[in-house]
Design a protein around this nucleic acid. Structure first.
Lengths: 347, 347
DNA sequence: AACGTTCACGTGAACGTTCACGGGGACTCG
DNA sequence: CGAGTCCCCGTGAACGTTCACGTGAACGTT
């Protein structure tokens, strides 16, 4: 009967390494059954004789058969894959956002492909180019403008992280920076500070919400404003913050408090200040903006505006879900995370 | 001619939200061309009149058409997807490993689907179950034993992180813990320590390489050994280390140095020790095992055995590549990362 | 003996692309 | 005017699964 053919296939299978992956058909031939029966065996469906099943499974093992996820995806829908673009995996902020995305995605049975853009616009574009073909939706941080984004991934739903919902034609999930800054500046003012500096991020795409919110609040409290008190940190890292603080200290030693673009920058600032002989917070108060758990480990523990990063990620997934369902995306407070002031020791 | 049909399709397309995603065929009909021409337009191939192309693209926009990645994957091979299973995204160690994996994968044009197992065996199994269908290979940390792993993902290449290459029948990439521990203990001994404790991880799957290496080295130096000096930290975190240190201090205040399972645990230990009034390193030396950049931020800066986490991840991808090519996986030193002692302030 | 049921399995079709061809029209050149 | 060339476009096939059926055998029921 099919014994011949099996023998042949057997030899064939182990002779040279298979240049083409075995298909369900190969297995069927080797086991002497039909495709459907093979399918039943590998998918643990019913309607199959245990003996036959074992024989099929043996053939599967022999040929190292694995069903093609493409062919499978073609016929039974449902596998959703979303791309996640992160600017810097070394900054603890982003893994936590990612954790939120992963958790929410898993609950829906979605998969998440992660891409580290390292804050490089070209690498962003690469990611988008790939995802436009391979993903059902994209979540991420982007420096490229809307037009470019739209052009690159034409049609694929996109949810932007940390951009005001108004600023973009895609879905967005953001941080209510203004609300955060309000708490932060109020705290500093209450402590008697009047000359407050800002260690801002790279001002590549204009002032950015942190700076505007900072200026708003400072003005609202009737404090003096000096453009020299705002220094840009090209790197959003401890080193970047340290460098920024050096420049600030040199040019404007009169500031008595600084708020950092993020916790890493604030920590870098603290270290530089101390190295310059300043006591924190007595001589210089430092306020972070992130709420990294790392902040409670440093000396002095960092006072900061804590952001629920996990929630941020989960909200983004929810936005994607709405986009995909054709519903209107969340807006306003529903799509925002509000920072909470956490008072520790540095301010 | 096709004007009718276009009108119809037009109305049809925007009337109610499409319950079934538009296919290349729909676009072809609407644009009045063949599938192939649509394909040419979407994929920027040549052999198409610019005018026709624009018309097709317009139809694409109208119907919100996006090519099915499954159908595409069927016909043109090459998209490789590997799964990455990480136990804890909140521990800075793992994002860095992930960064290495991502970088190496990107160079090969592979995609990486990330899964956070949160050190839960059940969640590991879920991941494996999904990946066995959806991935071409898997990299990750696993508590499940080989038999279970093999059963779950039957046939999919697997590369284990941080298991000795001998301990498993899959590919593996590891850390030369013995070499690291040798440097670490030597350093402590040179500083005059004789009663050294170990804040080990959870001893779920037996002693683990760190403990064995620790005991080996301690014995080799002829130091006294007390089982009470080894305490288990169920959580591999700062909190876990703090708790472990509390127990150690209470029962065995005679130890003058401890080495932590990882940096987080070591940092937790340091904090507890200081809270108990001990000076670090004068009264108690603390040695970490990881080399997190966070270690230089804490007070006192953590002396640690630095692991090249990024390289670890990249090696894992290389292993996958070999497995897929049918080559023999790397073994021995080629598949190991050797820790480097970084002396800072805590020991 | 006729009929329904269950079990184990096979057959054609469909999923949505791209690839390898093939063909017709316009234009050029001898 | 015929032949050659280029440009643009369409047709059948193939990719590897699963789904919805259909079929025949064995077994029981009336």
């Amino acid at each position: 009967m099919w014994a011949d053919s099996e023998q042949h296939e057997l030899r064939d299978g182990q002779a040279d390494r298979p240049r083409r992956r075995a298909t369900i058909h190969d297995v069927a031939r080797l086991a002497g059954v039909s495709r459907q029966t093979v399918s039943r065996a590998v998918n643990d469906k019913g309607e199959i004789d245990p003996v036959t099943k074992e024989r099929v499974l043996e053939a599967v093992r022999l040929l190292d058969y694995r069903p093609s996820r493409f062919a499978r995806g073609m016929v039974r829908k449902g596998t959703v894959t979303t791309g996640l673009v992160i600017p810097d995996l070394m900054n603890p902020f982003f893994p936590e956002v990612a954790a939120g995305v992963l958790e929410a995605a898993e609950q829906r049975g979605w998969q998440v492909v992660v891409w580290d853009s390292r804050t490089d616009a070209d690498r962003e574009r690469e990611a988008l180019d790939v995802f436009s073909h391979q993903a059902d939706a994209v979540i991420g941080y982007f420096k490229n403008d809307d037009a470019e984004l739209g052009r690159l991934l034409g049609g694929v739903p996109l949810v932007l992280l940390e951009r005001g919902p108004q600023q973009t034609r895609f879905g967005a999930v953001g941080i209510d920076v203004a609300a955060g800054m309000e708490q932060g500046i109020a705290h500093l003012v209450a402590a008697g500070h009047r000359r407050i500096g800002l260690l801002d991020g790279d001002g590549l795409s204009g002032p950015g919400p942190r700076r505007t919110a900072f200026l708003d609040e400072v003005r609202r409290h009737g404090l003096p404003v000096d453009q020299g008190w705002i220094v840009l940190c090209s790197e959003h890292s401890v080193a970047g913050g340290a460098a920024g603080m050096s420049r600030l200290l040199e040019a404007h030693p009169e500031v008595t408090a600084v708020v950092g673009f993020n916790d890493l920058i604030a920590i870098g600032a603290t270290r530089t200040a101390r190295r310059h002989g300043l006591r924190v917070p007595e001589d210089l108060a430092v306020l972070g903006f992130d709420g990294l758990s790392l902040g409670e480990l440093v000396e002095p523990a960092l006072t900061t505006l804590h952001i629920d990063k996990r929630r941020l990620g989960m909200l983004a997934v929810e936005q994607v879900a709405r986009l995909r369902a054709g519903e209107a995306p969340l807006t306003g407070a529903d799509a925002w995370v509000i920072p909470q002031l956490v008072v520790r020791a540095s301010a």
